[in-house]
């Protein structure tokens, strides 16, 4: 009998014969079993402000012990971390950091959370899952920044130990996902709905790329979908694109494009819309009722926080998020 296996983690559904390597580069069929090659072997380990993920409504001003291994389920032409996301694990320098060591480091560095980030955490699912489980026992929170390209069963299984997710909604067309990322939009939308159902604190990032996904009509459609399916309280981050990797032919996103995307979001009913990757007053959190600045930020630095017990200090309006 042929020892062929199929991975059921993400919608790519890799089918592998013995010795073959997966599309995400981190999985292999060895003698008829599927194995991860990256468990406990991160290639990126940093202590970051939680604002860098970005999470703006999740323990502001705290740090996240952030880890990633090589590999990704997608192949976005604009990837900011392509040196590791599009590499094989054996082509990166790795640390020997099993889950227990991640937790002890997170505690030693006084991080309120662990962030599974930089590349695509789905590719190091087993490592993330075991770490998240151990972190929960030590009361360290678990966050991930993901492209959301993951199947329902693994996502729901992980959700038991996940506290927050920032999902890249890269565009609102199937064409963009297939031509620019090598994936599909539908599974990402499904993941967003699942995370919401599971009660995970959710934020969304949309990198606005000139000519590729900056169509005002599509942005409006996306915002309406978010309000309709996820509600008005999911913070939406419009992030500025810079020429990178295989998209060096395009200019950085004009500020006006980001401002108009933000206005579209607010008009569609999104209560918290931000602009990122650039210094701008839309990095701040504003009270949706009295309009005062609630959390003042410059880049990743929180300069003032007027959310008290989850409410606006000035008018007592409840501000959605995880505040302590």
């Amino acid at each position: 009998m042929e020892k062929i296996v199929q991975c059921e983690l993400c919608p790519n559904g890799c089918i592998l014969g013995p010795g073959q390597r997966s599309r995400c580069r981190t999985r292999t069929n060895s003698d008829g079993k599927l194995y991860s090659l990256v468990y406990g072997r991160p290639c990126a380990v940093h202590v970051d402000p939680i604002e860098k993920k970005p999470f703006f409504h999740f323990l502001p001003g705290t740090t996240a012990f952030s880890i990633a291994t090589a590999g990704c389920v997608l192949a976005c032409k604009f990837c900011q971390n392509w040196q590791i996301s599009q590499s094989k694990p054996e082509d990166t320098d790795t640390y020997d950091l099993p889950p227990a060591k991640v937790i002890s480091n997170a505690l030693a560095y006084r991080c309120a959370s662990i962030a599974y980030t930089y590349t695509e955490p789905t590719v190091f699912y087993e490592y993330m899952y075991d770490t998240a489980l151990a972190a929960r026992k030590e009361r360290v929170k678990n966050t991930m920044h993901s492209c959301g390209y993951i199947n329902e069963r693994p996502l729901r299984t992980l959700s038991k130990y996940l506290d927050a997710a920032n999902i890249d909604l890269k565009a609102f067309t199937e064409d963009f996902y297939s031509n620019v990322c090598g994936g599909r939009l539908k599974p990402v939308l499904d993941s967003l709905v699942i995370l919401k159902e599971e009660g995970i604190w959710l934020e969304i990032t949309n990198l606005v790329i000139p000519t590729l996904n900056d169509d005002a009509k599509k942005i409006r459609e996306m915002c309406r979908w978010i309000v309709d399916k996820l509600g008005r309280d999911v913070p939406l981050h419009f992030s500025r694109f810079f020429p990178h990797y295989r998209l060096t032919n395009l200019p950085p996103t004009p500020i006006e494009t980001l401002e108009s995307a933000r206005k579209t979001a607010l008009d569609a009913g999104v209560r918290f819309a931000y602009i990122g990757n650039i210094r701008h007053e839309a990095e701040n959190t504003y009270c949706p009722n009295c309009k005062k600045v609630l959390i003042e930020r410059t880049g990743y630095v929180v300069k003032g926080n007027h959310v008290v017990n989850g409410k606006c200090r000035y008018c007592n309006t409840a501000i959605p998020g995880v505040w302590n």
Partner: peptide
């Protein structure tokens, strides 16, 4: 610390099936 070849660290995956 810098790590050997990741192939030396095979961990069985959680979500897969035999075809």
């Amino acid at each position: 610390d810098a790590g050997g070849k990741p192939e030396q660290h095979l961990t069985e995956a959680m979500f897969w099936r035999r075809v």
